Structure formats: structure tokens, C-alpha cells
Amino acid sequence: MAKRSLRSLAVQSRRVLVRADFNVPLDVRGRITDDFRIRATLPTIRWLMEHGARVVLISHLGRPKDREPELSLAPVRSRLEDLLGMPLRLLPDCVGPDIEAAVKRLTAGEVVLLENLRYHPGEGAETRDQEPDFADRLAALGDAYVNDAFGACHRADTSIVELPRRLPAAMGLLLEREIRAMEAILTAPKRPLVVVLGGGKVEDKIGVVLHLLPIADRVLIGGGAAFTFLKAIGYEIGRSRLDPKQLEACREALARSPEKIVLPTDVLVAPDVASPAGSRVVPVDRMPPDWVGVDIGPETTRRFIEILRGAATVAWNGPMGIFEVREFAQGTKAIARVLRERSGQDATVVVGGGDTVAAVQQFGFAEGMDHLSTGGGAMLEYLEGKELPGIAALPEAEG
């Protein structure tokens, strides 16, 4: 059933706790290198401001072991100020009497950001018993709750699953868009449906492959994930990434639907990932034993593009190679280019995963994509058919 929407929540003059996903990458100087997740939450923040809510933003950042200052949300506050065009306070904690008093003083349309939730052990699902009153203390700050953190919905953290049990709750505009995009893939997709999977970890992708095989028309596998599949067939893969624990699952997937799974027929290899000058293209059955696969080859790229040009729905998670190195980025760039073109025509294209979205942005193809997902693991688990704790915790839509 559909979940309750932000639009049906009474927010005028009420303190609304907004669980955002501001877990953004930072450089060594603590500067944000990609504000995609922050910008994605702006429609929800602005909607609440326009409807007179007293907005209290909460999020985690990284995995602090204590209160490391480098994991403060101060850089997020600065970026939000720029994006919203208004001053915004960062309170020094996320619970406690002083924080409650500051939140109570908020006026309609005002926004405040609380400090990193993970500074408290009570936020984590595994460490919740160390601070059992954390959920109640957090809930005391709000009159209502909005979840707009799709990227964290696959985790059963306190702010994700306990707050909806204590406050009137709804999904934010971003979470609503994310669910709609995922359902467009899983429920009666326009055909043909093509799934493109890459990246390094087969263990993150194999569940998606097995779940989507009955649904998808084609599953294209590139990146580091392809090499475990190629090894499962019996090919030499040199020093390319291999997950031996997933070999049997790869064989199972290939046995189930050999006509649907499309693997590389050629790859770009290099003596070392740090040696792009010595790279060359080889067929997958002639890979040098001591070399490493770094990208799909031109023949594979052409084959993937041909399939994608005929697709009506595409889900892509995981780059085709080590796109951060210019010489190893051609496969990923070509896929991003054709999917941007298809987005502007009659296809529905959903792109997710931090590295994949970063690649699309790096190549200048983000503008015009139908949907760039803020979820990496959350997107994969949704497409795997798993129930995400953060979505399950929200109330059903009325009527």
C-alpha cells in the first residue's frame, strides 16, 4: 500500500523533525565535494517552510566513534545556507534540555539543523541499548516527523524506525519520488526493461540479479562485478576483482536465464590500476594472468548501447570501470551518454549508487536524467525485493 504523504500532514506552526540524508563526501579539509543529497532534500524543506512549519533537520554523517569534530554537520549547515539563501543555525547537539528550548523558540517557517545523530550511541541499531532513552528524547523535539532519507531507509537506526512510532509521520517529497521511481521498475515497467549493474562488489548485486531476472528483459553486467561472473564460466580473470563466495550464485543466475544476462565480450586491461599508459583491449578469453580488468571494452560498449537504445525502462547501478581514471572511464561515459539521450526520448531511466551518480555528474550528463537516486544500498535492497525498515515504519496513506 502507498505510504502517507507529506502533503497530508498538518504542519502549520508545528515542529517537524525532518530525517534527511546529509551523509555527504568531504575532502581532507572538511569541504563538501558533492552536495547532491543536500540539494535533493530542498523541495521538502521549502515546502515545509512555505506551509508554516518549524523545521528541525536531523541527519547522520559518517561513522563517528566519539564526537570527532571532522564529522560535525557544520559544512552541511554552510551549504544549506547557500542553497536556501538564508541564515541557518547548527545546534551543538541533537538532544537535551538546551536543544529542546532552542527548538521551542523556532517561529513558523524557520529552519534549524541539529548536530550529527551518530554522536550518540542511541542512534545506531546495534548500539541502541547503550542509550535506551534516545528515541524519546529525540521525539520530544517534534510534533510531527518526515522521513526524506531514502539513502538511510535500509538501516533500522533510531531516527529511521523509532520516531514514526512516536510522532505523526509521513514520507517527504524526495522519498516519495524515490519510491515512485523504484516501483516504475518493479511494477508493470514499460518494456523492454534493461538493468545495468556494475561496480566492484558482486555480493551487493547478485541478489538484485536473481530477483530481477523474472522481471527484466536483459541484465547487463560490467565493472568489477562482471569478473566473478566470467570466472564462474571458467575464464581467466587475472588479478581482477573476484568474490569467490559468490561464484555459485553467479552460476545459478546464469543457469536460470542465460539468454537474459549479457556479460562483456572484451575488456580493457592494465598491468596495474596505476598504469593507464600500458592498458590494452583483449577478448575475455585472452586475459593475461597477471593483469587487471579496468573497464569494459569497445565491442562490449557497442553491444550494451545497442540494447539500451531499444529499452523503454532502464535501471543502472554501478560504473562499468574505474571511471576516476580518465583512460579507464570510456565505458561508463558511453553508458551515461546514451542513457541521458534515452531520458530525453521515450524511456524511463533510473540511475543510483554514489559512484554511478558521481560519474554521471562528472561527465556532465546528470541534467536531463529522469531520476538520479540518492540511495546506493537502499536502491539495491529495494530492487532486490527486500522491505526497507524506514519505509515499513511509516504509516499507510489514508483512504
Results as ranks from 00 to 15, higher is better:
98 D>I: 04
250 C>N: 03
200 G>Y: 06
247 L>H: 08
11 V>K: 02
293 G>M: 01
385 G>W: 08
325 V>D: 03
234 G>T: 01
3 K>V: 13
224 G>K: 00
293 G>D: 07
315 A>W: 15
16 V>L: 00
242 L>T: 10
179 I>L: 15
293 G>C: 05
68 E>M: 03
65 K>G: 14
103 V>E: 04
278 G>C: 02
262 V>G: 01
145 Y>G: 01
74 A>C: 09
254 L>D: 10
83 L>G: 07
183 E>D: 15
187 T>S: 11
197 L>Q: 08
251 R>V: 09
250 C>H: 02
346 D>W: 11
223 G>Q: 07
355 D>S: 09
212 L>P: 00
194 V>S: 03
233 I>H: 09
393 A>N: 07
256 R>Q: 14
100 E>Q: 15
18 V>M: 01
143 D>V: 09
377 G>E: 05
144 A>V: 11
286 R>V: 10
368 G>L: 06
145 Y>L: 04
243 D>V: 00
187 T>Y: 08
128 R>D: 08
340 R>S: 12
129 D>C: 08
163 L>M: 07
132 P>F: 09
247 L>P: 04
60 H>N: 12
364 G>T: 15
79 R>Q: 13
393 A>M: 06
337 R>Q: 14
169 A>C: 00
16 V>F: 02
30 G>H: 11
55 V>N: 05
134 F>E: 06
374 T>H: 11
129 D>N: 10
172 G>M: 02
206 I>R: 01
282 V>F: 12
344 G>V: 10
92 P>E: 14
175 L>T: 15
335 I>E: 04
60 H>I: 13
244 P>G: 06
203 E>H: 10
376 G>R: 01
248 E>D: 15
263 L>G: 02
7 R>N: 14
162 E>N: 02
227 F>I: 05
145 Y>E: 09
334 A>V: 11
319 P>L: 08
361 Q>H: 14
386 K>M: 12
316 W>P: 00
22 F>R: 04
141 L>F: 04
194 V>G: 01
378 A>P: 02
346 D>R: 14
4 R>C: 06
338 V>L: 09
54 R>W: 13
233 I>G: 00
104 K>V: 11
175 L>V: 15
74 A>R: 14
11 V>Q: 01
159 S>T: 12
211 H>E: 13
168 P>T: 09
105 R>H: 13
238 G>M: 09
19 R>I: 01
232 A>F: 05
37 R>N: 06
261 I>E: 03
54 R>P: 06
228 T>E: 02
72 S>N: 10
248 E>S: 13
165 R>W: 03
276 P>T: 10
35 D>A: 14
102 A>K: 00
10 A>R: 12
230 L>H: 04
192 P>K: 05
397 A>M: 13
385 G>S: 03
114 L>C: 05
253 A>R: 10
77 R>A: 13
8 S>K: 09
348 T>C: 13
244 P>Y: 01
77 R>M: 11
243 D>E: 15
339 L>M: 11
46 R>H: 13
19 R>Y: 08
94 C>V: 12
110 E>P: 00
101 A>L: 14
377 G>R: 01
367 E>C: 07
259 E>Q: 15
307 I>P: 00
85 G>N: 08
133 D>Y: 12
36 F>W: 07
332 T>W: 03
328 F>L: 05
28 V>D: 15
296 I>M: 05
116 N>W: 11
84 L>D: 04
96 G>L: 12
384 E>N: 12
333 K>W: 11
